[in-house]
Design a protein around this nucleic acid. Structure first.
Lengths: 228, 228
DNA sequence: CGACGCATTGACAGGGCTCAATTTAAGTGG
DNA sequence: CCACTTAAATTGAGCCCTGTCAATGCGTCG
């Protein structure tokens, strides 16, 4: 866990020179999003692929009537809507800006040109897709095999690893997550999450502070998440 | 649903000429698997990427102590262990031959050479990874949002679409699946699957015949899977 | 024919979801 | 800065789905 909060290995532009990056960025269109703004909505025709430059996007998938699955949060350097490089697809998720967020977008045609000009891009996308695939396989298995409290612990740790920031001994997830969102991420209800976090707060493992969650004792959480 | 049972759009060699295909196949090593043989095991260092030529592989992920998640069955033209193109990975799943199965394998170095020589390969892999990612996202959501019986229906339909064969009015999944396997695919227990299939058999929606499952009334199943 | 694995069916219990009622916190306008 | 409004979080109680355990039935294969 480092000081900065962009601890991803999934940089879309990895392996490219400064000049190549500039060239690529030049043919994208920048989009500036206010907090809560929707970049694209599940079910719409997927026309563009986006790269997060600053801020954070929340990717969520909705089930008919109610329940939501929070797929993940993505930060700077990460790509979303890769599916748009395939023909005639719909966005499988909805992307919402968590805070003020800046992204760059490329339409299918342009992205295909870039991919054939810079093969690294295709490989980086593949890399990213494979990592997410593996993560999802694990989460699926956990959803079926483990009890809720254990899964809530895993969720917190995952989000912490992807977007945590060290602050003294503690690790703070520096954007607000509601119990509902953590529940959607875990595959449970806000009630269970609330009860669980209350219990952990009593034990001194976590703290909540103005919508943000602070992990006081990551080690205890890790132990708990691995075996109950 | 067509006559043949290779109704996948995920052909690894799509877009390549006969000569190119031959060239690619030439540098792979063929592996012949008996029914039940393990091609690679979860946790081992991922050294090779495999293409199914004939037969069928079952990909399953094991949870410490017991429970298993059946990720999917793959058939001719489909690739597995794409993760091996990344450095220092472990197989995230175990691959077992469902029947007699023939596969071709390439090690990381060779595959990387092929990918840079034939960019279509990288793109086809990306295509495949994205489709699987989307499918898994849906399954994850369903696992949380829907009741077991509905999910069992979806599982049967998914397997049917991926490996079904039309036989008169009925659709037969022409390799044996145990209740346990269907349960692992769905995220439930063999008991629940058994009860569910029994009920459907009474309704005339499905039939079991010497380990194989026959879908008598796909339409009824679809309706049931979409809204209870 | 016996044995083994797989499937079926019943009974039971418990994890966690649902619903409802409060409490707390956040946001807003005067 | 405070009263007011609204949203989010907490906590309790009850119940249902489905997982667990156990016993029995069935088919297949040596």
């Amino acid at each position: 866990m480092e000081e900065n909060n962009n601890n991803t290995n999934n940089d879309f532009l990895r392996g490219l020179s400064r000049e190549e990056r500039a060239e690529i960025m030049k043919c994208g269109t920048a989009v500036d999003l206010k907090r809560g703004a929707v970049l694209f909505r599940q079910g719409e025709p997927a026309t563009r692929t986006f790269l997060v430059l600053e801020g954070r996007l929340k990717l969520a998938k909705l089930h008919e009537e109610g329940k939501e699955f929070l797929v993940r949060y993505i930060g700077p350097g990460e790509l979303t809507s890769m599916i748009a490089v395939l023909q005639n697809r719909e966005y499988p998720v909805t992307a919402t800006a968590v805070g003020a967020t800046l992204v760059a977008g490329w339409d299918r045609k342009r992205m295909m040109e870039l991919m054939s000009e810079y093969p690294e891009l295709t490989f980086n996308m593949l890399h990213h897709a494979l990592e997410r695939l593996e993560e999802l396989q694990s989460r699926y298995l956990e959803l079926h095999a483990e009890q809720v409290e254990q899964r809530v612990a895993r969720s917190l740790l995952r989000i912490m690893r992807q977007s945590g920031r060290k602050s003294g001994d503690e690790i703070v997830i520096d954007f607000p997550i509601s119990r509902q969102e953590l529940a959607d991420y875990t595959g449970t209800t806000l009630y269970t999450v609330s009860r669980t976090l209350s219990a952990w707060e009593k034990k001194g493992w976590v703290r909540s502070q103005s919508g943000r969650i602070i992990i006081v004792d990551p080690h205890a959480l890790v132990l708990f998440s691995e075996k109950i």
